[in-house]
Amino acid sequence: TTIHVGDLTLKYDNPKKAYEIAKKLAKKYNLTVTIKNGKITVT
């Protein structure tokens, strides 16, 4: 599972963990989490 945050690309083997991290990042920086085709993007 890949999380895209701006220019950063973070890879995680565990999709659930990746989603949790994405949610935390989104909350911290007041951003939105988008999931599309298995890719998690924080914008």
Rank of each mutant, 00 (worst) to 15 (best):
K28D: 03
I21Y: 11
V5W: 15
K28R: 11
L10H: 03
G38N: 11
T9E: 13
H4V: 14
H4Y: 12
G38C: 04
T2L: 10
T2W: 07
N14M: 05
K36G: 11
K27C: 05
K17I: 14
N14C: 07
I3D: 02
G6R: 03
K28Q: 07
D7Y: 12
K39Y: 14
T32V: 13
L10E: 03
L25R: 01
N30F: 07
T2I: 12
A22V: 06
K16A: 13
I40T: 02
T41F: 15
T43S: 13
K17S: 07
N14E: 05
K24N: 07
N37Y: 10
T34E: 09
L10N: 03
Y12Q: 02
T34V: 13
L8M: 07
K17G: 03
K11V: 15
Y19S: 04
Y29L: 04
H4A: 08
K36W: 08
G6W: 12
L31N: 00
I3A: 02
N37R: 07
T41V: 12
K27V: 08
N37Q: 09
G38L: 05
K17F: 11
L10K: 04
T34I: 14
G6C: 14
K16P: 03
K24P: 00
K36L: 14
K36F: 11
K16Q: 13
K27F: 09
T32N: 08
T41K: 06
E20D: 09
D13W: 12
L25W: 06
K11D: 08
V5R: 03
N14Y: 06
D7M: 12
V33D: 00
K27M: 10
K24Y: 15
V42R: 00
N37G: 11
T34K: 11
Y19F: 12
D7N: 15
G6I: 08
A26K: 03
K11E: 12
Y19N: 04
K17H: 09
A22S: 02
T41Q: 08
K11W: 15
L8K: 07
T43N: 07
D7W: 14
A26L: 05
T43P: 01
L25M: 07
D13I: 07
A22F: 08
T1Q: 06
D13H: 06
L31E: 00
T9P: 03
T9M: 12
K36C: 13
N14R: 03
G38D: 07
N37E: 11
P15K: 07
V5H: 05
E20I: 13
K11A: 11
K23C: 11
T2F: 08
K23H: 11
T9W: 09
K23W: 13
K39P: 02
K36R: 13
K28M: 10
G38K: 05
P15W: 15
K36E: 14
K36Q: 13
V5F: 15
Y12V: 10
H4Q: 15
N30H: 10
I3Y: 01
I40Q: 01
I21S: 04
I3M: 06
V42F: 10
Y29K: 02
K11M: 15
T32M: 10
D13R: 09
K11I: 15
T41W: 15
K27S: 08
K28N: 04
V33H: 00
G6E: 04
K28V: 07
K27P: 00
Y12H: 03
L25K: 01
D13F: 08
N30W: 05
L10Q: 03
L10D: 02
K23E: 08
K28W: 10
K23S: 08
T34C: 09
I3T: 02
L8T: 04
D13Y: 08
T43R: 12
G6M: 08
K36I: 14
L31P: 00
K36V: 14
